[in-house]
Amino acid sequence: MNAYNFAYLDEQTKRMIRRAILKGLAIPGYQVPFASREMPMPYGWGTGGVQVSAAVLTPEDTFKVIDQGADDTTNAVSIRSFFQRTAGVATTTATRDATVIQTRHRIPEEALGEGQILVYQVPIPEPLRFLEPRESETRKMHSLEEYGLMHVKLYEDISRHGHIATSYAYPVKVEGRYVMDPSPIPKFDNPKLGDMAAIQLFGAGREQRIYALPPYTQVVSLDFEDHPFEATKADHPCGMCGAQDSYLDELIIDDAGGRMFVCSDTDYCEARQAAGHKGKDAA
């Protein structure tokens, strides 16, 4: 593919995005505006994540894409083949072999190490958006650290449901300063955000924002003293590999209400099955 520059975007654009990424890494959790480009895919399909990936990819990298934990869904397949064609980089589905991982809605079960970059696709970067509609006001609230409103949302959860019912996109506070939307990952993944060895980059294409967590950043999920944060998952083992500690998808398997729970992280599940672990539903 000589018709495209390496990784689709031109060098000046990548330079602009890298500057936003560096600024984001320097101020963890702060939303850096950037001049988001039109990408050959619709908004909502990961245009922000794709631009960030394009800016950090080098020819030596190995690339992996996850969509809701899976390597084989539409979004993951199409973005992986996009960079295969435009950048010619090696791709993999194995978490430990990848140097750049673009993800939608999950953090891999396997702990990431130094030298790896995790790129999140973010639909709405502003955690205060549905509480305060004015962007001018939310920016002011961030700059003045006025985050009382975020707890009003959690208060409403408890008063209505008896517990904090927010189960994804659960707000976190970064290094005691910025409140951040961790993208719609399940709150089960929130504890992995903090103190992670890999670099975490967040790209929102339509909203034109990039933010970042450098390695080993302190990330705290917001909560109340008498209603502490809890990382929840379905209370079952994986039907395929028997894992007790992974985040599970619930699948409906017939018209009679039959269901099974399987790991949402397909690579994790397959690796465990290859190692001989077997769940109760495995063939």
Partner: peptide, 8 residues
């Protein structure tokens, strides 16, 4: 909550 109360 705006002045820092965190006990529901």
């Amino acid at each position: 909550m705006a002045v820092g109360e965190r006990h529901y």
